[in-house]
Structures are given as structure tokens and as C-alpha cells.
Design a protein around this nucleic acid. Structure first.
Lengths: 341, 341
DNA sequence: CTGTTAGCGCATTCAG
DNA sequence: CTGAATGCGCTAACAG
């Protein structure tokens, strides 16, 4: 391994000088800089992170914590995509990204502790949010830089988070259904415990109310989309005396299950029933009918979270803030016009 | 930050002793061990990785590089799943895992160089394999520990790789179709450049030949599944005078596209056409019809690769080897019996 | 069984 | 503008 000393020797300067040209210190003459750089290149010098980290007490690395992957939810294409978003900025800023690799909640917590106490990373991105989460509490207590993608359950204005305006998105997409003539619209969402679901549902409900449409409990379904993609949800809905003609579904992946269930039951989408959802993952484009869905800009969600976190690691006093990533509806083929009765 | 010195002082021993109890060195009396451990707990001591890494010249970290994510392929649930597999062993062995975060090929290469030269990681897992890949060549030249998930294009018995027996898998799943009475079976695969595709196709072909069935070129289709999920593939196939009754598709995600295309064109699966594929990602279970597919044990693929790599980082002279992860067919509802004509 | 010493590679005072 | 000295926190001989 070629060290700073080697290039110092080769150049006939002191190690500290080499260190300074690495940092591009302005007090070094342009000439020696060139000379040193040349030697670095020739010798194949590359700085050693561990040494650097030790000296400066910082790592230029961020940790990313995925939800407990006991959860099948991890198979959601949302995750690779957000990782890409994060990666795009870590790459640009020459940070590295460490993934937490626990599977149970317990393990994850242990991992995070290691990351924090062991100085593995300068900050952490939480890709989930739960009520009373040990990890978040821990980070908070330790005053360790972290951001949340989504909406925190507690201390909402003390923790910087990156989210969409899911309420508005829910409202808009529901309005789209209303505008195309639908009057009986149901909502199918994942766990009520999740803010995403709640926000989107609230938006749906607001739209329904404002339009003066029927707002009944029977039309709001919550199901673990892990289990058979909400098959039951569909069955429940179809067994109603007055069936909905439009469905707002809180996640593309879930739509896939619902769609399949619908067609299996002999309903054609969008002919018999229209359907819209959220996320705009790749899937929604390749299935038939392709999905009208709100693109929540997953990549940007990731990128913004990384940016915000890095700022925070650089200046710990950076105030907590909320970053709202814009969304936009992508119109495709899962919705059809419905004439008034 | 509480260091080894602090606990040394608090315990009245030398720093080196503390270091030894951390390493659980057997030459330390059980008594002082207890004493030291107690102090560590009380003071909230946690070892600093950077310092440790610097001293031992190793990082207990592995790098994972994903395929260039210009590729939509990353949205394949295959990736989160394999990451989980890797994570399960890195966690157990107390390693950490760093994701490469480049998006273009160029960027990825730069990242890998940083990882290697900067001593960010002890070894690297490549989650893709391409002909004449700079990254692989680089790792190879530098004699840096790495493993490949899949099959390397070059130096196949010099690089340890973890793969399924895709040939056999292809053969078996095709045989399943044959056994259920299908006589005209087509293959739809991704890029011919990929070994996975090639191997699976070769298996398909072997099965077809052995069964004495028609083996024509028209029945072998290659398409970028990125684009509209192989819609054209389907159209081509359907426009044939003698249409196939069974389809072997090289990836579940692609099946999704094909399935949609088929139903859109008015064909019902499995009634009119049967279909089988590979991977057994979550999707294949939630769509209707659920997919008969070969489970390639993605998680295990990841876990084995991590294990093999870690072994290699510990003992660089570990010989290159090939690890074959078993597969198994999961029978679901995308295949129906076909009576002889 | 334990303490002392000397680095690991780099950044950063402080001099000059 | 540059060099010498010191220390980041930990491990690893070497003594004893």
C-alpha cells in the first residue's frame, strides 16, 4: 500500500504537504501541487479512509435502514428505486452508503447501535416510520443526525422528513375518477398503521365528500397486501349490494393483486370497474391494463433525503424541516369514462 | 467519545488489556475480564471501527455492486431479496455492507476503485456479469477478493461464483409442460447476452428435443423485457400459423408483461395457453393466475455469496469455486392439462 | 496473565 | 508557502 509518506519521499516534500494538496489547501504553491499530484498518480496513491476517518472523526458515509424485512414489503420495487435515488447523491458527494442488514426488528436495532456507536456512519436514513420505534427514539436521544422518508409519528416538527403530499395526491387522483363520471368509489389500502395509507385515504375521503358522493365505511378497506394481494378486499367489495365502479388503491403492487382478483371474478378493468393507485413503479406500465397512478417520484424522494441528511451531518444545528416531493398523475388505461345514470 | 483508555483508567489496567478482553483473548484472567466488561458497560464504551480498521488493516465490510441502474432491471424484486440474503450473513458475522451507488457504468467503476483503493471494503459481490466487464477485470487484476452471483463470462474457473443450475431448471420446467400434454412450447427470454437466459433456454431446448417435439427458431424469442414487458414477443407468437400452447418465460417479471399481453389479446391463461417462468418472486403469487415457476432461492443465492466472499477475504488463497444453489418448481395455476390431439 | 511501546495512515496544530 | 511534531483509537509485538 502506497501512503502519503511514500509520495512525500518521492516528491521531496513533507507528508503534511502532501496531505494539504489532497485537501487542495490554497496555501500550497501551484507548482508543488502539480509535482505532488504527478507523484501520486505515478505511484498509484489513494487515500486510506480508515486513517482519514480516524483523524477527522467523520466518515463521509451514511447508513440506510430498510423496514424489517421479515416483511415481504421489501419486495416492493419502491426500495431499489429509492436506493438509487440515495445513491445518486451519495455518489456525487463522494459519500458511501451502508445498508443495515438486520432482518428482525431486534437485529436492526442492534445494527443501528453499532453504526452509531462504532462511528460507521455520519448519519442515517430511515426508510420507514412506525409508532414508538426504538430505532428512531434511539437516534433522537443520541441526537444523531437522521432523516425519515415518510412521515414520523412523533415529534413531527423536530425530525426532518421527506415525503409527498399524500393527502393532496389522494384527493387529486380521486377527483380524476369523479371527473370521469364515477360516483361510487372505494378505497383499498394497506395497514392503517401507516401514515401513507392514512394520508392517501384522507385525501380520497375529502374528494368524495366535496363532490357530495356517498361516503360509507363499507367502501374503505384495509388489508395486508402481503397476503394474497388483497384478494379478500376484492371479494368483500364485490359482494356489496351496491358495488363501487371506481377503486382508489394505495399502492401499485396492491393494485396488481386487486386487478388479478377482479379479472378472476369476471370483472374487466377498466370496462366494468376503474382503478387508480400510487407510486408508478415499473410494473404499472407493463401490466394490462396499464395503471393510471400517481407518480410520487421515488427517485427524488431518495435523493432529497440523502441531501438533507448530508447537510445535517455537516451542520448538526441545521433545523429540522419537512421536504415535500411533488407528485403527478400519470394517465394510463385503468380508468374509463362512466356516463351518468 | 469514550475510548479504550477511559475504560483502562477506570479499571486500573492497561489499554492493551482492555483491547484483549474485547478480542476475548484467552490469556486474560476471567476476573479482569469481568471487571473490564463491567466498566465498558458502565461507561458506555463502544469500539471505534476506523481505529480498529486502521490498526488491523481490514474492514469487516463488503461491497455490493448492482448492475448499472440506468437499467430498469433494478426494479426487479430479485434485488431487494438478494440484498436480504447477503444481509442475513453479514449481520451474523458482524460485517457491514456497502452498496455501490453509481448509476452509469462509468460511475460504478469509479466507485469500485474507491472501495478497493481506499480500503473501504474487504471484498466485493458482483450482482451481474457481463462480457469484458471493466469492474471484474479490475478486481481480477488487483487480485482483490470478489465473487459473482451468476455465471462469469471469462475465467470461469478462476472466479468463484454462485449460481443456480439454470440449464437443469429450464429442462425441468419445460418437462413439466410436456408432461401435462403440451407439444408446442415456445421460449421467451431476455437479452441473449445474459447467461441466465442462455442457460435456461438451453435447458428448454434440451427438453424439447429429448421429447421429440418440434424445435423451431420461431418459437424462441428474445426481447428486452424493459420495453413494454415483451408485448411484441407475444404478438409475434400469436401471429404464427401454428401457435404454441405453452410458454417458458425466463423471468417472473417478464411473465407479468406476457400474461397481460395475452389476456389483452383475448387469450386466457392457462385455459388457452399455459405459462411457466423463473424466480418465484412475490408477484408470482399474487397475480391471477398465480404462476407456476421455478423458485431459485434468491435469498440463499445472496447468503451463499456473502459466505463465500467472507471466507475468501479471510483466506485469500481460498481456491475459486462454483456454488450451485438448488432450485425447485412451485406449482401454481398458470399451467393446465392439455389432452393429446 | 498483564503492562509498555510502537505504529496503522492521515490531518493538524505550531513554527519557521 | 512548507516542515516537524503530535494525536485520532486501537492492536500487536515484546517484555516481564
Amino acid at each position: 500500500m502506497v501512503t502519503i509518506k511514500d509520495v512525500a519521499k518521492a516528491t521531496g516534500v513533507a507528508p503534511s504537504t502532501v496531505s494539504r494538496v489532497i485537501a487542495n489547501n490554497p496555501r500550497i504553491s501551484i507548482m508543488t501541487k502539480e509535482k505532488v499530484r504527478k507523484a501520486m498518480k505515478e505511484l498509484g496513491y489513494h487515500p486510506n479512509v480508515s486513517a482519514r476517518n480516524l483523524a477527522v472523526k467523520s466518515t463521509k458515509a451514511i447508513g440506510v435502514v430498510l423496514p424489517s424485512s421479515a416483511d415481504k414489503a421489501l419486495q416492493n420495487p419502491f426500495f431499489p428505486e429509492i436506493l438509487r435515488g440515495i445513491g445518486s447523491v451519495t455518489h456525487d458527494m463522494e459519500y458511501s452508503m451502508t445498508l443495515s442488514s438486520g432482518i428482525t426488528e431486534e437485529e436492526i436495532f442492534a445494527e443501528v447501535q453499532r453504526m452509531v456507536y462504532g462511528s460507521y456512519v455520519d448519519g442515517i436514513i430511515l426508510l420507514y416510520s412506525r409508532l414508538n420505534d426504538r430505532v428512531m427514539n434511539f437516534l433522537h436521544d443520541k441526537n444523531f443526525p437522521y432523516v425519515i422518508v415518510g412521515k414520523p409519528y412523533e415529534d413531527i416538527d423536530e425530525v426532518t422528513h421527506i415525503d409527498n403530499d399524500n393527502f393532496t395526491a389522494g384527493k387529486e387522483i380521486t377527483n380524476h375518477l369523479i371527473e370521469t363520471g364515477h360516483e361510487r368509489i372505494a378505497f383499498i389500502g394497506g395497514s392503517k398503521e401507516l401514515f401513507v395509507t392514512m394520508d392517501r385515504e384522507a385525501g380520497y375521503q375529502a374528494a368524495v365528500k366535496e363532490a357530495g358522493l356517498k361516503d360509507c365505511e363499507e367502501y374503505k378497506i384495509h388489508t395486508e397486501f402481503l397476503k394474497s394481494g388483497g384478494r379478500e378486499a376484492v371479494e368483500n367489495l364485490l359482494s356489496l349490494k351496491v358495488r363501487p365502479t371506481g377503486l382508489v388503491i394505495s399502492d401499485d403492487l396492491m393494485s396488481l393483486g386487486v386487478l388479478s382478483g377482479l379479472e378472476e371474478a369476471g370483472f374487466s378493468v377498466p370496462h366494468d370497474i376503474s382503478l387508480v393507485s400510487f407510486n408508478n413503479v415499473y410494473l404499472s406500465e407493463i401490466i394490462r391494463p396499464s395503471l393510471t397512478t400517481v407518480d410520487i417520484h421515488i427517485h427524488e424522494l431518495g435523493a432529497e433525503s440523502a441531501k438533507a441528511l448530508i447537510e445535517k451531518t455537516i451542520d448538526k444545528s441545521e433545523p429540522a424541516k419537512r421536504i415535500t416531493v411533488p407528485h403527478e398523475i400519470v394517465f394510463r388505461n385503468s380508468v374509463s369514462k362512466r356516463e351518468a345514470f
